[in-house]
Design a protein around this nucleic acid. Structure first.
Lengths: 153, 153
DNA sequence: ATGCGTGCAAAGTCTTTGCAGCTTC
DNA sequence: GAAGCTGCAAAGACTTTGCACGCAT
């Protein structure tokens, strides 16, 4: 598996894990690598990740997947997205310039991604005011797409 | 039950429902009223709503509640929020000046609400570009609160 | 050697759905 | 009257958890 160009190595993860009394494992490394190889803008559900790992010949249990993505999201390594569906999606939590946001159609579930630098600026300012450290921010616009406007339901 | 000061009456809802071939029912009216009486910034889960209705002596089934909030959210009457927990919350989808956003702590689950007018402006611009009609927008900042920064997990 | 992590299977939580009868337009 | 709506109970989707064994530190 190639490891992409993101400056977040397995070793960095190991260090951050160890600092919390947690351990690096082959499963965690493999999962991190899948996310590192993910094209910008793609995001995976636990189930997606499971399938993808199977395709790569990696047999990691769903329990471990759920446990791992939750852990990585809490560490700020992954970004947890809640789009229009009923389950969460994850992607690598990219540094500033890659951050993107979502425009979702309530009717068709179409999701459009867009970028906007002001959002992070605003977020940092707000978080600062309350003493929070920002892990992630997402502007989620919910609306009706042109196609959706034509349907009754 | 008082009906608050929000300019969205049962009659308006009835009209919008009828326009789609749907009907006004006592259950839908009651549910709308609960949301209209909800203090700014409060949001209810389906379960919360069920309890609140019970307390008011209204016995509406959970199924109906789920069906109703989904319908109202799709109509843009309610705003569907996904905070840090594992279930959705709903609140009345207020006009511009009342819109608020959320700052969530991954560790403690604390949620802080804040307002920011730029967000709606940005959202409208983006939606416009893609031909979407905006129903709602929410900036969700995920981070670590001051309290959370002190705990290992 | 200690104790965290994994896999399995079972349980849990939240949400949706089929159906019969009642209600609204 | 026809088409929606409701309540009930059952099913469904997604996620979490207890436990025994194995592995990282």
């Amino acid at each position: 598996m190639t490891t992409g160009h993101v400056p977040y190595s397995s070793e960095t993860l190991r260090a951050e894990l160890n600092a919390k009394g947690c351990r690096m494992t082959p499963q965690r490394e493999t999962i991190l690598n899948v996310f590192k190889d993910l094209p910008e803008g793609e995001h995976l559900s636990a189930e997606d990740l499971h399938h993808r790992l199977r395709d790569l010949g990696e047999d990691i249990s769903l329990s471990t997947i759920y446990r791992t993505v939750r852990l990585l999201a809490r560490m700020g390594v992954l970004r947890e997205l809640e789009l229009a569906e009923d389950h969460k999606h994850y992607e690598l939590n990219q540094p500033r310039p890659h951050h993107h946001h979502h425009l979702v159609c309530v009717k068709t579930n179409r999701v459009i991604e867009f970028k906007n630098d002001q959002i992070l600026t605003i977020s940092k300012k707000v978080a600062d005011k309350f003493g929070f450290k920002v892990l992630d921010c997402e502007l989620r616009i919910v609306g009706v797409s042109p196609e959706g406007q034509r349907s009754i339901f």
